[in-house]
Design a binder for these strands. Structure first.
Lengths: 346, 346
DNA sequence: TTTGTGATTGAACACGTTTTCATTTTGTGA
DNA sequence: TCACAAAATGAAAACGTGTTCAATCACAAA
């Protein structure tokens, strides 16, 4: 009749383990806390009995008293995006190894941040938050998380730590776009490309801005013309259409530099299947990210790679450090990029 | 000096709100529980003050007393897989709307289930678990979750509810492969295809077995030869290689029926870019899933679609129902498939 | 044996909430 | 005005754990 009685086997509690092992409940707690002082043989016996009873400490109860939830919240607008899903995958793996679980929240499709979502999320008391977003000011996030929760905002591939108390930015995980872009431009120039188009990502994206700036700078340094800038939003369809417009309304280009790989795919398909141009003979294409699909033979994309593993390792290191020492000195790490040469340029 | 004092603003507690509003802490609790008995004007005042103090009920504390964590655990081997990431995205959205948050865990790459992971996960007390996997017996999962936690095991696109207590299967969310496959076979037959190859998915996958069985049945019903069965694992690279083998070592085929879209991409690329065959003129290709990439012009894949939204809605409905009435009658729902005709057949 | 030091132990408290239950207040009809 | 049911309220008891602190134990040195 009673709802609780219905459950065939309720979860074992520390008290039950303690009773079974003839020790106090505190000893059970200590058995699961490696650095607590407990006689080794006693710990072994407790852990043995705990295993028999299928006991695991309740994280909610533990969280209540320690103030640590061992949860890392992730706010993601689009889990399906190849780049983001890769990042979620790698982050979850790395955090899991450190004893943290991923708490996944879906933001609105237009990247706007729903205040109710943040309020709701705060209820779970995440130890840290990673927000994948473009057009949100860190202040908005900080306002909702009033505890000193380290928040990392990932603008495409630039991560910044936003201090909750002050709203100012501290740690930064940057990507040195220069290397990869320079290699790409050199390659394009070597093959005689003159008119270069930049097919942009989301306008508010920090990474997009940095890529555009770096491309302009590099072209200028090499005495080449400034790029034709097309606006985009990182999606296949928009890139496809922008490419059509470039050649039908505009004057075309020798080469297209896309802000991400998916955009490059859209450009390639527009060129080959609708404009009747061939890649790389007529138009050369370079992407950004090196997602798994980039090596698919239909695209075989030459692209600027950001090492995902290195990136995720650095980010996790940052988070753990911040968690351990909330007031540590601001920290900036910069990752390199390099060109992966495949078949869409030469 | 004190670690807690360091945090500029600790999270507001129900007591603080109560004090500020001149009510008891119980009233605050009731204000956040819509069906609790509380004078409307009082509720409004409390909620107002709560908003000012940026107060949100602590989920850990709530979970402790209610026994409901409002967490749904998801065990995922590969977040990057287009099909799975779509499913995670849609499930998270739907569950979030019902007040549940997604707790994401990464399983080993080889799909094997790490017992420690399960033990760890159980500590978070998820209200329900969704496991994306192939080769795990539900019993293994059930053994680790000793509370009556509804577990849904998703074998590719077949979902089954595993009762924790008995280890037997209850609810089932099946996909009627027949419709889509029949339409596809009819189309292939209409274009004169005779030798049909089936490029399989993971051997242990229930969905793969069902697709293979249904394809054989359909071919037989139409008086066509049994398919050449190639083993695969749903990945691009394996499909690519299997297709090469089919034409170089084996005797080739008129048409390839791939167990999923990514496999179909691999087959198409092998045919076009390495075997020098054209699709659909020389060989016709049909996929399964209709992932977003299927409409990319380079592939423009004819494929059997399983409606993701409908599927996720059904699954979430199942989970919520089971949560509300753990002892309700077993429930089976079957979804339909249909062929999306694009350019790789006709 | 005695003393002292450090490791080991458990009782009591704390964490922030919901639930129970007895009490008080409100609203309605005679 | 009175009586009575229904709604509203708060004190106290949970929920399962980590932490504090005083007490106990083990063991080596004197």
């Amino acid at each position: 009749m009673n709802d609780r009685a219905d459950k065939k086997t309720a979860r074992a509690t520390a008290d039950q383990v303690a009773r079974e092992a003839n020790v106090s409940r505190v000893a059970v707690s200590r058995a699961f806390n490696p650095n607590a002082s407990l006689k080794p043989e006693k710990r072994d016996r407790i852990l043995q009995i705990a295993r028999e009873l299928n006991y695991t400490p309740d994280m909610a109860a533990r969280s209540l008293v320690t103030g640590r939830s061992h949860l890392v919240g992730m706010i993601v607008p689009d889990v399906c995006s190849p780049w983001e899903s890769q990042e979620i995958d790698a982050l979850t793996t790395a955090l899991q190894a450190e004893g943290f679980a991923t708490l996944l929240f879906k933001a609105k499709a237009d990247f706007s941040m729903d205040p109710r979502l943040l309020t709701y999320m705060r209820g779970f008391n995440p130890d840290s938050v990673i927000a994948f977003t473009e057009n949100i000011l860190p202040d908005v996030l900080c306002g909702f998380l009033d505890r000193a929760v380290p928040i990392y905002v990932i603008y495409d591939d630039v991560a910044q730590f936003a201090g909750a108390a002050s709203g100012t930015l501290y740690d930064r995980l940057l990507v040195r776009q220069k290397n990869g872009i320079e290699q790409a431009v050199a390659l394009l120039q070597g093959y005689g490309a003159r008119r270069i188009a930049y097919l942009g990502g989301k306008a508010q994206s920090l990474a997009n801005a940095e890529r555009e700036r770096t491309l302009k700078e590099t072209l200028s340094e090499r005495g080449m013309d400034a790029p034709i800038v097309l606006s985009g939003d990182y999606t296949y369809d928009t890139a496809y259409q922008a490419t059509l417009d470039l050649f039908r309304i505009g004057d075309g280009a020798d080469a297209i530099f896309a802000a991400n790989d998916v955009g490059a795919f859209g450009a390639i398909d527009a060129l080959r299947h609708e404009l009747g141009l061939s890649v790389p003979e007529d138009v050369k294409v370079v992407g950004f990210d090196d997602i798994p699909q980039a090596h698919w033979k239909s695209y075989n994309l030459t692209t600027v790679r950001i090492d995902l593993d290195e990136r995720v390792r650095a980010l996790v290191r940052l988070i753990l450090m911040r968690l351990r020492a909330p007031d540590a000195e601001p920290f900036t790490e910069t990752l390199n990029t390099r060109l992966i040469v495949r078949g869409t340029v030469g």
